[in-house]
């Protein structure tokens, strides 16, 4: 029951955290900040609007946002909450987690190709190109996690990880940093993508939504907000120490997610966005970190390669 309440809490808090990022950016830039609840107003406004649908599009364009949102919420059900665990869990559930996020992306991409717009085609091919790097690195991380803990279920992995030997501190650090890069990439934030850019040529995620309006746009935006929070929640699992009272742990989880979003806001304020052609190099950092973590674990587990 508490898991379902927490899941609903995640769903309802997802837009607020995006508001946090905007707030941080505004304060850093010395602007008067919009309320952190602004994303809710935006979503509500979209929900109340009608839609304009391109005459070029087919059935795919209309169903894609629903599938996208459903897939992201489905992935959320497999994301464990610290101490409490995930709503759905079974052996190797990390595969279904990653692949349902993949399905969400698949429909986002084909929906953008459905409009026949060259801008959206551009966004689509960038999205799929960058996701090859991120997804591969993510699976290296998941494999390493399975390797350290000898477990294959998300929930069990984190329980084992948090209760095992000391060298995992370094591993945790590597995991947190590489998942943070994934958060930036999947959440389409600076330095990979800039959600505030006004030039279609430089967009990735935003440009794929160009033709969406009304409820469908709201679904797409909401889905990407949830996706970001899901990854942040994953990261927070690495940050919560063991043996705390459950309420304190949950509070700490909330605080850590808040800090993660704060970091995203700071990154956006401090770092310029990379050139599109240099984005892969930045993303390979995640691959490198993931492989390093595997190498360290392999070294320790087998007592060095003799």
């Amino acid at each position: 029951m508490i898991k379902i309440i927490l899941t609903l809490a995640v769903l309802s808090l997802a837009p607020m955290f995006v508001g946090v990022i905007n707030k941080v950016k505004a304060i850093w830039a010395g602007r008067h900040a919009a309320s952190i609840f602004q994303p809710y107003y935006d979503l509500l406004k979209l929900f109340r609007k009608g839609e304009v649908i391109s005459t070029t599009t087919s059935f795919v364009f209309e169903i894609a946002p629903s599938i996208n949102l459903a897939a992201v919420i489905f992935a959320l059900l497999f994301t464990p909450f610290p101490y409490i665990g995930a709503v759905l869990k079974f052996d190797s559930d990390f595969v279904i987690f990653a692949y349902s996020l993949g399905l969400a992306k698949f429909f986002l991409v084909i929906a953008s190709l459905d409009t026949g717009s060259s801008f959206e085609g551009m966004g689509a091919n960038r999205e799929v190109t960058f996701s090859t790097i991120v997804e591969t690195a993510f699976f290296v991380l998941l494999g390493t996690l399975a390797f350290i803990t000898n477990q294959t279920s998300f929930e069990q992995m984190f329980i084992m990880l948090n209760s095992s030997a000391n060298y995992t501190l370094l591993i945790k650090l590597l995991f947190v940093v590489s998942l943070f890069i994934m958060l930036l990439a999947e959440g389409s934030r600076v330095p990979i993508d800039d959600p505030n850019t006004h030039l279609e040529l430089t967009m990735i995620h935003e440009v794929m939504l160009l033709d969406y309006s009304g409820v469908n746009l709201a679904f797409m935006v909401f889905a990407s907000q949830i996706k970001m929070l899901v990854i942040a929640l994953l990261i927070s699992n690495f940050l919560i120490p063991l043996n705390l009272p459950i309420t304190l742990a949950l509070l700490l989880c909330l605080v850590s997610i808040f800090l993660i979003y704060l970091c995203v806001g700071l990154v956006e304020s401090l770092i310029a966005r990379t050139r599109i052609s240099h984005v892969p190099q930045f993303l390979f950092l995640m691959t490198a970190l993931a492989l390093t973590s595997f190498a360290i674990v392999a070294f320790f587990t087998h007592g060095g390669i003799k």
Partner: peptide, 10 residues
């Protein structure tokens, strides 16, 4: 709500 059909935004 109203559903309008229009060409792709470019």
């Amino acid at each position: 709500r109203s559903i309008k059909k229009f060409k792709t935004w470019d």
